[in-house]
Structure formats: C-alpha cells, structure tokens
Design a protein around this nucleic acid. Structure first.
Lengths: 244, 244
DNA sequence: TATTATATATTTGTATCACAAATTATCTAA
DNA sequence: TTAGATAATTTGTGATACAAATATATAATA
C-alpha cells in the first residue's frame, strides 16, 4: 500500500513526507502514545530511503509531535504544556526592544489585576505559603543583585497567576513574566542612581499588600493593589529608558 | 579548532551538537541573517559525520532558529511572530476538553473588554472597514454553516485585537481565537435545537454594537458590549454542554 | 567598462551500505 | 514460573556517491 506524495516540486521530499506523517498524527489515526511505523516501513510505503524519512521524523520530534526512542521506535507525544511556549520565549528574547517590553507591560495591566482578584478567591494555603516564602526571599535579597530580585519578582507574579487556577492564563502569561528579568537591564547599564532602598521598599510594600489582600480573600483590594504595582512597574521602566 | 562536546552520555551526539550550535545563535555570535558554517566545516570542528550534523540542523530548522537553503547554506532566522504560537495551537487542538475551552473563554473575559476599549481609541479607518465588511459577511452567512460562522466570528475578534495596537496581546490571544471554531461542535453533534435565528440575531446585534462603539471611539461602551458578548458566549457554551 | 552568458565550484538533499547502541522479543535453564 | 542469556528489531552514526540548487568564477559581448 504505497502512499501518494503530491509532488509540489520545489518542496523537498522529506518535507512532503513530514506533512503526510503529521496528518496521521493530527487526525488521530495514530493515538497519543501510539507507535508510528518503523523507518523501514515508511521507506517501503513512500519508496524512499531512510535519508528522506529521518529528517521528517526529526522535524516532527523537534516540534514536539513525536518522541523518538533509540532502539525502540517513534511514538506520538503527549504534548507538554510547559514546552509549547518555548518559541515565544525565544522570540521575545531575540526581539528585545523597549517597545516590546512596554507592550508586555500593557498586557500585564490588562490581565494581572483581574487575575489577582480571582486568585484572592481561589488560592489554597499552599499558594499562600509559597507567596509568604517569596516575600521573605525578597526581603533577604541584596539590594544590588538585580538578577535575583527580578527572579523573585517573576516567581511572585507567576505564583499569583497559578493561584487564580486558570492554566490557559498561566500558559500564555509565563513568557511575559520571564521578561521581568529584562526590565532593569537599562538601569544597570546606566548607573545605580535608580537602585535605591526606597524603590525596593515600595515594591516590597506592594507585593506585601497584594499578598495580604489575597490572604484575606479580598478580591477587590487585590485587584487595585496589583494594578498599582504594574503601573509603577511601567513608570519605573519608562524612567530607566529616559535616563539612558 | 576542534570544539569540546561534553559527553553527558545518554544524550545523543546530534543533540549535544544541536545545543552547541544553538549557543552560537542565542549568544548572537552569528547574527540574524548570518550564515552558519557548512556541514563539512561542522564535521571537521566536531570530528563527526554529516549524519550527526544534519539532524541537529534539521531540529534547529524545525524550531525556527535557522533556515536551511539547499545549495546555499544554513542561515540564522529572523523569527516569524506568526509561527511562534503554532505549538500552542497544536496543544489546544489536541487537548480539546470542555475545561480547556472554558478556561480560554475566561481568559477572553479578562482581556477582550479592555482590548475593545483600547481599540475604540486607537482604531484606524482600515480597521473600521474590515470590521464593517465582517458584519456583512456574517449577515450573509447561512444559519447552519457553523464553520463559516465561527470563522467570521474569529476574524471579528482578531480584528478588534489588532485595532488595539498591541502586538503582544495579538500574538498571545490568536491561539484562543482559533478555538472559536470548536465552541459549537457539541451543539452540532447534539442537534440543531440551539441553532436558532434568535441566537444568531443576538450575536450579530452584539457585534454590531461593539463595532458602533469602536467607530464612535466610545471606549467605555465598547468595554461593556464586549463583556456582554463574551459572557453570552460562555452561557451558550455551557448550555450546549448541558444538552449533551 | 559593464553586462550577460557560460562554465565551474560549492552546498544541501537523497540513495546505499555498514555497523554501533539501545530496546524488545525469544529462548533456555533452573 | 522465573531468571538470565541470546537473538532480533529499531534508531543512531559513519562513509561514500551522486543529484539538485545555489554561488562563484570565467569568458564573451555590447
């Protein structure tokens, strides 16, 4: 049962084969966890060599559709939610303009206040513990260790999102949180004139007030404190741009 | 100048090579548009065969980091924003549970009213024209052509997002809009009892009112009409689940 | 000189063959 | 029945050759 490969010429053999195999997967013909035909079988079906099959499988593997196990076979992958945003991470990382960062901050302004509000209602004690620990870590973080500060900051917001209990929001916001690390790079490059104890105290105070609201299940309060916090984040970022 | 390959054994040769080459790219050592060494050169540098290099390059290509041009070479890719969400599309497509869809609808409730509000202030006449055309298309869409209706619906919301002028929001919301097509599948599977002219009229009326608000640059009105619309969307989806 | 056409060289894609390495299936012995 | 050894299967890598697309160099022409 040899299969047809529509020859759109200009398209490589391995690419046409990749599309064929992808169809098998996306259509559900081969279920998740199921085993694909062996390279040999594909070779016969498509009447090509392994050198045409292997790049197709490798590409599908890199895209997360299949998992290749040496000595065993190729299996349809259960997609890992944590991996699907990696291309976005890369994109943000490589187009790291101030415009982009401002857009991400604006998106945070859209999403995070509401998220904090929902988190206040749905949070578990585990979330509270994690947030409390986070506040301590921030308190112990050296004033000039901006990388560590940013990482703790990221963790805080990521945890609040998690507490809101919407995995879709989590998934899509994570790449944005990862950018927090980049917020203060201009500051660091410029000088330490903006790295003050007051700025740190203000940030910590806002984190604390957000935490308190979430702890008290006060959604409205959490909403406004978060909005205030992100607004301050934007102001600080703009300030750091201007002093450059 | 042969390069070191730390042998974490268990990890394949081609995978270690892929990481090495990825470093060259992410570090910026080879700039965007720059040309990578040829397969031959890599073979010499790493003292391996082409069969170890080619899968590494193919994987990087599938992940969007490089572009392989037959007869020419391998080049560092300028990442295409439209492609970075493809893994998310696939993930949503393959984990198509009612829970997931509800979560996406909740995210829409978080984001879209604000987006509509901003769109009302920033929209261009091109956006208005596109939206107006969209309303006509919906008006001419047969009542029972649910696929077409969903596609027009998706286009409407996508355009409103675009009008808001935040590419990050656009990028991250697009995978969610693509799911609109799936909303009414349960309905279709069940029966046509929920496919009524009234429901269609109501939806069109809301689209129209959102459009009007955006046209009049009335952000507040756009906000509430959009909120109403998404709320209705959720109600309809829940209804369709219950009748199943 | 500048441009075009031709020829040559370079580079990636595919075909074979061979073997290594990991896994899976089979068989044997206790 | 179970444990261990053996064989078979399957993907990974090496090597060589050639096809196909592109890039470079050369030569011819205006």
């Amino acid at each position: 049962m040899e299969k047809e490969l529509q020859k759109d010429n200009k398209e490589l053999l391995s690419q046409r084969i990749e599309k064929q195999i992808e169809k098998l997967i996306r259509s559900g013909e081969i279920p998740v966890g199921g085993k694909l035909p062996t390279e040999q079988q594909f070779c016969e079906q498509f009447s090509v060599s392994r050198n045409a099959i292997r790049p197709a499988l490798k590409s599908l593997s890199a895209r997360g559709l299949v998992k290749i196990v040496k000595g065993s076979g190729v299996y349809v992958n259960e997609i890992d939610p944590r991996s699907v945003t990696e291309p976005i991470d890369l994109f943000f990382e490589m187009s790291n303009t101030s415009d982009l960062i401002l857009h991400t901050i604006h998106m945070r302004q859209l999403v995070e206040p509401e998220v904090a509000s929902v988190a206040a209602l749905k949070r578990t004690t585990e979330h509270l513990n994690k947030l409390e620990l986070n506040l301590q870590l921030m308190n112990n973080c050296p004033l000039f260790d901006l990388d560590k500060e940013a990482e703790i900051d990221r963790e805080f917001h990521s945890t609040v999102s998690d507490a809101a209990g919407n995995p879709v929001v989590n998934l899509l916001m994570e790449p944005i949180y990862k950018l927090i690390t980049k917020y203060k790079l201009p500051v660091f490059a410029k000088s330490e004139q903006l790295v003050t104890q007051e700025a740190r105290d203000l940030m910590m105070h806002l984190h604390q007030s957000i935490f308190d609201a979430i702890k008290e299940k006060d959604g409205r309060e959490a909403f406004f404190r978060m909005r205030e916090h992100i607004k301050l984040t934007e102001v600080n970022y703009l300030k750091s741009l201007n002093t450059q």
